[in-house]
Nucleic acid binder design. Structure first.
Lengths: 273, 273
DNA sequence: ATTTCAATGTCGCCT
DNA sequence: AGGCGACGTTGAAAT
């Protein structure tokens, strides 16, 4: 059970030592109060006084959140070194990152709440489904989803400066470079594919090399660009593929972290779904 | 002054109504406790039980933070609709986003702290310096930093599908497309420049079009690609440019949000720096 | 609403 | 440590 050290509306001086102690002992620290923020590093920013929530994690990550929005207005990644001290202007929380050198300073002029938490336990594994690699791996196993007669040579093939998702040969023996996207493909995806096709052509000047962009949809301009580059587009239904992936895994040995877990739990949740 | 509603180690049932009330009234909500997390939407994820910090902002943004790391393990952007209720399994906090449809569920089995905050005030303007546009604008005014004799035609010129940072003519009358980066340029930057050069060539088949990538450094492979595409690279010293930008602004009319403010404050801070 | 691009992007993987 | 690409990228600006 986590142990809490809590202060409500503490004087700055009193809070300073508690905060300094908390960060020194790598506790989770939560501070709510009125502050100004300064950041200098890769970029630079200033933020005048306002009520904000500041979080310092046991690993040294710092987050400054305004009352609105998903993203912190300022932050510092893990392993920043942190100090806290009372100055003439207020309570200064200072976080310094080494490489690249970046400094984040939060100057509190009023504290509403200071909370230090010790003994947090969180060892659970974070499990993600439905990412691009799952689609890519399935399509590599089942290239007929893209085109009949495709024979996969390899996945994640290093080509030139990057990696082609899948390289295959078609029925006629031509090389086929396949780029997979799980979201709408833009021209960046088209150019990525183009680059791999060109690189493979340079490697095999005698061979014909096709390029197929596989995605649930494609932006209009990206489609135009794709056509002009002589590339092809194959639409896929991501949801349908996920179901197939789950079904395929159901037929194989039980795996941990299987996409099956995802559908199983969905099932339990909504027996009528 | 913000008003706090605080509960320590509250029973789930009791907390449920407080939490539901807080989110309904768009208060900042901070919850610390043991929970599991499920997300389904563009992707999908599962996270087993562990101690976490959950934040619900007045605008409906939701953040689930583990004890380590900068980024939330799960989240929901602003304007998600949120409900909280006690179920047989625990206290379920549910956030639903409309388009795209995404559902985030946090199931608490133990609560260490529940805090609702009303009346947060934060109207200060967030001021950023040293972003790309500042470099671009300065270079457009001082193209000699890139090459002697350059004459800028325009900035942010729409070309093909995007915008070239700067388009100029060199001493020989050739078109010069300039792409500016404030960080190490990768091949994406090279390809971006290449695309603009090609587009301008199509627009002006008779003209010679050069392409210059301006960046503090360039990745090795990106350099190779750049060379093979017949493009050029001009190194810049970003810190030196910033100083020049500040100096240039010092000579012009006072502006709000000037980079000068940034250096001024630095000066005050370190009179001997 | 869609497209495009920057970002203190962050994060993970690989060399 | 550097390069590379995915990300539930997010966010802003322009069309």
């Amino acid at each position: 059970m986590p142990q809490l050290t809590l202060m409500l509306n503490p004087p700055l001086r009193e809070a300073a030592s508690v905060i300094a102690d908390a960060v020194a002992k790598h506790r989770l620290l939560i501070v709510l109060g009125r502050c100004s923020v300064r950041y200098t590093g890769r970029g630079a920013s200033r933020l005048g006084p306002g009520d904000r929530l500041v979080i310092v994690k046991p690993d040294g990550a710092v987050l400054v959140h305004r009352p609105r929005g998903y993203s912190p207005v300022n932050w510092q990644p893990e392993s920043s070194s942190i100090t806290a001290e009372e100055t003439g202007e207020g309570l200064l929380l200072r976080s310094v990152r080494g490489r690249p050198r970046e400094v984040l300073e939060v100057l509190f002029t009023r504290l509403d709440l200071v909370l230090a938490v010790e003994g947090l336990e969180d060892t659970a594994e974070f499990i993600e489904y439905l990412d691009e690699s799952e689609i890519r791996d399935y399509l590599a196993e089942h290239p007929e989803e893209i085109e009949e007669g495709l024979h996969v040579i390899r996945k994640e093939r290093p080509i030139g400066e990057g990696y082609a998702d899948i390289v295959a040969r078609d029925r006629a023996g031509n090389y086929v470079v396949i780029e997979v996207k799980r979201v709408t493909a833009g021209k960046d995806a088209v150019l990525q594919l183009h680059r791999y096709v060109e690189a493979l052509r340079r490697e095999n000047p005698e061979a014909k090399v096709r390029g197929i962009l596989v995605a649930p949809s494609i932006a209009k301009d990206a489609r135009t660009l794709l056509n002009s580059l002589g590339l092809e587009y194959k639409q896929i239904d991501v949801q349908r593929l996920y179901r197939k992936i789950a079904a395929a895994q159901a037929r194989t040995v039980t795996q941990t972290r299987s996409i099956l877990d995802f559908f199983k739990k969905k099932q339990e949740e909504k027996p009528r779904g």
